[in-house]
């Protein structure tokens, strides 16, 4: 059976088509400012990690995380998002697996949801940077035990992609 008709983009004939950008409110910061924020946070996170305060470091990263593609300046936006992911991964990698449950419990629900989004983003980038699948899966397991399947559902529905 010919199923190529399924691939026709019917929205192009619809003058009132719903665009992806209308589905969520864009990150209010402009890309340069977001990049600046991310760089500052990376520095703050390093000092928190040096003190061994993982919860504080995670909270820093997960609060006001940059999201969404900035259509006008995609290059800066992706640089920004990747740098932020790198910062987050550095925290994840430096946490002992026995400490994870306590850290996860200390986070707010919003922070847990954002962390889940980053875990999935990390898993979507195999072999990127020093992202290790087993570390991500370990965090995913502990996070799901604490925050439940609801947290995974929110990571999937939310269009404010990190």
């Amino acid at each position: 059976m010919d199923v190529s008709f399924r691939k026709i983009d019917i929205d192009q004939y619809d003058e009132d088509a719903l665009l992806v950008t209308e589905l969520y409110e864009a990150d209010p910061r402009d890309p340069a400012q977001a990049l600046n924020d991310v760089k500052q946070k990376a520095a703050a996170v390093r000092s928190s990690l040096a003190k061994g305060d993982i919860v504080a470091a995670l909270m820093l990263v997960l609060e006001d995380a940059p999201y969404g593609p900035h259509l006008d300046d995609a290059k800066v936006a992706s640089l920004c998002a990747n740098l932020h992911l790198q910062t987050l991964v550095s925290i994840l990698n430096s946490t002992k697996s026995s400490e994870i449950p306590g850290v996860v419990k200390a986070l707010s629900t919003d922070a847990q949801d954002t962390l889940m989004k980053y875990l999935y983003k990390g898993m979507a980038l195999p072999g990127w940077g020093d992202v290790s699948g087993s570390v991500l899966l370990g965090w995913h397991e502990k996070l799901t035990e604490v925050a439940g399947t609801g947290c995974i559902v929110r990571a999937m529905t939310d269009r404010r992609l990190v």
């Binding site: 629900t109 949801d113 925050a147 439940g148 399947t149 609801g150 947290c151 559902v153 929110r154």
Partner: peptide, 16 residues
């Protein structure tokens, strides 16, 4: 509560 105005959100740990 439109008069408040307040929106109370309960995020659940279970499926929707």
């Amino acid at each position: 509560y439109p008069g408040g105005p307040a929106v109370h959100v309960i995020k659940l740990s279970i499926l929707p």
